[in-house]
């Protein structure tokens, strides 16, 4: 039985990240968005009371909590108080899955407020997988890990990122949130073929796509989430879609948030590419 069928993972279609400037638009009837993703921590600040701010959206949309602070790869133990609050938020939202990043974000109790890549070794894959299992046991819902964009590679890595990503997912028995833009960014920064990365992933574990914009800084590419999706990422997305089954997709934009109509048009474009790629694959 595959990961998706075992956990009855639904296909949600095309969604957007919930951002304050778009609240009124998303509360209009027929906003044309199938689901929303929220940053989990934004609704954990006041002991979960703020999660009620999502009530009007929860009446209309499935809401998927996406975290940035689990810090699965940190040598620090998982923060049990954080997990307890996260569980309350998740239970309230009742999502079909939740997600965070395959990275580390703090050390010695201090937070670095960034998503930092890990050295890719079997030991570290096993360590992170154990932590993911712990998280899944605590929360009791299907969990996805997202690949982060990166700008450094470690001398002591024993395998490419895609092998590490797949190994962690298999050992932890979790799903994958495949950020297509992050694959592109890391591929440019580390000179690998992005399709080598994507074809190496376990097909049945890919549950969700992130698509976002980036900045080309000349000597490297920066994952900025503040620009429209670039053509090279659309092209990579079109190549990705036929490899996996039904996978929910969403557009991420964190800065320079455009008007709703503009972001919605980008989401519709993603949906068109997705549909076209599926049709072409079956033809």
């Amino acid at each position: 039985m595959t990961f998706k069928s075992r956990y009855h993972i639904p296909y949600l279609g095309a969604g957007l990240g919930l951002r304050a400037p778009h609240y009124p638009d998303l509360l209009q009837p027929n906003a044309g968005v199938s689901w929303l993703e929220v940053i989990s921590e934004n609704f954990m600040l006041d002991g979960t009371q703020s999660v009620h701010r999502l009530d009007p959206f929860l009446e209309r949309y499935p809401i998927i909590p996406h975290g940035v602070s689990l810090s699965l790869g940190s040598v620090d133990a998982l923060d049990k108080s954080y997990l307890k609050t996260l569980k309350k938020v998740i239970n309230y939202l009742n999502p079909p899955w939740f997600s965070d990043h395959l990275c580390w974000a703090g050390y010695g109790g201090a937070h670095l407020h960034n998503l930092l890549p890990l050295p890719y070794t079997a030991d570290i894959a096993a360590y992170v997988a154990d932590k993911i299992r712990y998280v899944q046991d605590e929360i009791g819902r299907p969990f996805l890990i997202e690949n982060v964009s990166s700008y450094v590679e470690y001398l002591d890595s024993q395998m490419p990122e895609w092998e590490f990503y797949a190994m962690v997912a298999e050992k932890a028995d979790c799903g994958l949130l495949l950020d297509v833009n992050n694959v592109y960014v890391s591929a440019r920064n580390h000179q690998f073929d992005p399709m080598t990365y994507i074809t190496a992933l376990p097909q049945d574990r890919v549950v969700q796509y992130h698509i976002a914009g980036h900045l080309d800084k000349g000597t490297f590419v920066l994952d900025s989430h503040d620009h429209p999706v670039r053509d090279e990422v659309w092209a990579l997305f079109a190549q990705t879609v036929p490899l996996f089954g039904d996978v929910s997709l969403m557009i991420e934009r964190d800065d320079h948030i455009p008007p709703f109509a503009e972001l919605k048009a980008e989401m519709d474009h993603a949906q068109e590419i997705y549909t076209q790629a599926k049709v072409s694959a079956t033809a």
């Binding site: 790869g73 040598v75 030991d123 360590y127 932590k131």
Partner: peptide
């Protein structure tokens, strides 16, 4: 919770 590898 597991013990972290030395490299990390």
């Amino acid at each position: 919770q597991p013990d972290p590898p030395q490299l990390l």
